[in-house]
Design a protein around this nucleic acid. Structure first.
Length: 575
DNA sequence: GTGATAATGACGGCGGGG
DNA sequence: CCCCGCCGTCATTATCAC
């Protein structure tokens, strides 16, 4: 989650270097493969690539075979490609991990995508729009999705050659899809274990009556339709609201085992949730704001295949307003500060200088401050989640207060060598426990004897804590978390809560391959639940520098969540 | 080296008004 | 339907003190 940034990246974009770094991150279990991919990422083989693509093979297939055979073995590459073409009755272009690309789309959506490109390159010098469109069309004809093409044009620049663009896309695909498509030792069809069925978000039964969701639009732009955030953001229901969806129909491919639960920020850049949902078996995300569970907002999307009937909240219910959560602030809370709920708890807190400026501004006034001062103070208080702790004094929340708001036991992140700054960071990146527990509560009746849990990007163990608080015994937990301090926190919590199960912690999702998974699953009989909230760095709105979307450096680890989940599904269905 | 501190906007959803 | 202002956002980077 954190701690995996190389830090050595320059401002100017060097696609070759960056891709090598990225690939190094993605593919660490096989050194020779890494070396070959690196050479793939160069432009030395683009001639071969172009030639084979011209022969009618898809870019992805070609890249895959070059990867497998080495670019010097052109003959075996061609043989393999021909073999696959013969095996598959479908044309080579169709073999993609993403079955919902634009190749079969209508003119309308294609034009939509074109206009998207224009808006993407708004900031850049448009040297020759016509040739840009040509490149875009060429990429589309090669079988790439509009998304891939647009990202390549965006990242490589509009002046780059077609070969450079295809190399860029190929390298990115390699990095992201190689693992999913190429389990090291067990070849299987490149399509997923679960063939993706044609989808439409299904209808939902709302307390007995039917409600149609998202089916109003014309078929023309169906798949491009951005997901709408529900208002109010209560997902399929929250404990305090009577408007509850009690039944939904999941796509067949989404059925467990295992159950899965994926989380990320709700307000991600456009298209991100469409992609996430598409990969996660076309399950519609459940968008929930944790302000319906505690005193702080937290707008998140959750994609899961859990039942949604008979959910129940953790008790006792946590304080629901700022004033309930922090009674001592009542005395100092000015009447002109109308806040009832805190905003999203983030990884950084307000500075002392700021609170001092606010104190001065308010102190200089007789009685209530003038409106412009009120406005300024409220703006800063909202932005930094400041609370009133004395006469004219505001302050950021203490780490233990954040722990409480997020539903963690007090001192959960305290001690063990973690700094105050890192506590804020780890907490800011975490689940809201009550929210997640509400969704996971349905597992209690299903698994009275406890569950085996695979927890990816565990952080400080939000899912583990939620399950424990629900009274669901944790039998075997495989927890993957990059940050050592976070692993220590979970380990420490595990020991303090007298767990009787077995906690295995790993540090890198990218090293979790089919072999290791199978090893784990053989030893205790598979996973009942796969939880994960992959990094949001490149999706979060507060990121000023690298809000690159799902293809961003950290956020692209989503594809590892998918890869691992799909591996687990495969292994489970085999047994 | 680590930890604390402070400065650094862009972007999209929403709702009101035309 | 469009326009426009309001609001909020699991952050990154440079710098300083130690």
């Amino acid at each position: 989650m954190d701690g995996n940034s190389s830090g050595a990246e320059s401002e100017s974009f060097d696609w070759n270097t960056e891709d090598e770094l990225e690939i190094a991150n993605f593919q660490s279990s096989n050194q020779t493969l890494h070396a070959e991919v690196s050479s793939c990422a160069g432009s030395s083989n683009s001639k071969l690539m172009d030639r084979l693509v011209a022969m009618g093979f898809s870019q992805k297939m070609v890249a895959r075979e070059i990867l497998e055979n080495g670019e010097e073995n052109e003959e075996s590459i061609v043989n393999a490609l021909l073999t696959y073409s013969a095996l598959e009755s479908s044309p080579p272009e169709q073999q993609q991990i993403d079955s919902n690309n634009c190749s079969s789309e209508t003119e309308g959506s294609f034009l939509d995508d074109l206009s998207d490109i224009d808006s993407f390159s708004d900031n850049e010098e448009i040297t020759n729009p016509v040739s840009d469109n040509d490149k875009f069309s060429s990429l589309m004809n090669m079988g790439y999705t509009a998304e891939e093409a647009s990202i390549a044009l965006e990242r490589c620049g509009v002046d780059s050659s077609l070969a450079e663009l295809t190399d860029f896309i190929t390298a990115a695909q390699m990095a992201k899809a190689a693992d999913a498509l190429l389990p090291p030792e067990e070849p299987r069809p490149r399509n997923l274990c679960n063939t993706q069925k044609k989808r439409r978000f299904n209808d939902y039964e709302v307390l007995g009556r039917k409600k149609q969701m998202g089916s109003e639009k014309k078929i023309l732009t169906e798949d491009d339709e951005p997901l709408r955030m529900p208002n109010p953001m209560i997902g399929f229901g929250v404990p305090t609201d009577s408007f509850t969806i009690v039944h939904r129909t999941l796509p067949e491919a989404a059925f467990g085992p295992p159950y899965f639960y994926y989380e990320n920020v709700a307000l991600a850049p456009k298209g991100v949730w469409n992609t996430i949902s598409r990969f996660l078996y076309d399950v519609e995300p459940e968008f929930v704001d944790s302000k319906y569970f505690c005193a702080a907002a937290r707008k998140r999307g959750y994609v899961h295949n859990l039942p949604i009937q008979n959910r129940f909240p953790l008790v006792p219910l946590p304080p629901n307003t700022i004033q309930e959560a922090f009674p001592l602030t009542r005395k100092w809370w000015p009447s002109w500060d109308p806040r009832i709920k805190l905003n999203c708890l983030q990884t950084c807190v307000g500075s002392a200088k700021l609170t001092e400026r606010i104190r001065k501004a308010v102190e200089d006034c007789i009685g209530d401050p003038p409106l412009h001062v009120q406005k300024y103070v409220l703006e800063e208080c909202r932005k930094w989640n400041l609370v009133w702790v004395g006469r004219n004094k505001v302050a950021p929340l203490e780490p233990d207060e954040v722990e409480m708001l997020l539903g963690f036991p007090k001192n959960h992140t305290r001690g063990g060598g973690i700094s105050r700054t890192d506590r804020y960071k780890s907490l800011g990146n975490s689940f809201q426990v009550d929210t997640v527990a509400y969704h996971l509560s349905v597992l209690k009746d299903l698994f009275p004897g406890g569950i085996n849990l695979l927890s990816l990007f565990s952080g400080i163990g939000g899912a583990e804590v939620a399950l424990h608080c629900l009274g669901i015994p944790l039998k075997n937990v495989v927890s993957v978390e990059k940050s050592e301090v976070n692993r220590n926190i979970v380990r420490s919590w595990w020991e303090q809560t007298n767990q009787r199960g077995n906690l295995i912690d790993l540090d890198d999702v990218q090293q979790l391959n089919g072999d290791r998974l199978e090893q784990f699953m053989d030893s205790f009989g598979g996973f009942d639940l796969v939880v994960g909230g992959s990094p949001c760095n490149n999706l979060a709105g507060s990121n000023r520098h690298t809000r690159d979307g799902l293809e961003g450096k950290e956020s692209s680890l989503f594809y590892d969540y998918f890869r691992i989940l799909d591996l687990v599904k495969c292994i489970m269905s085999r047994n």
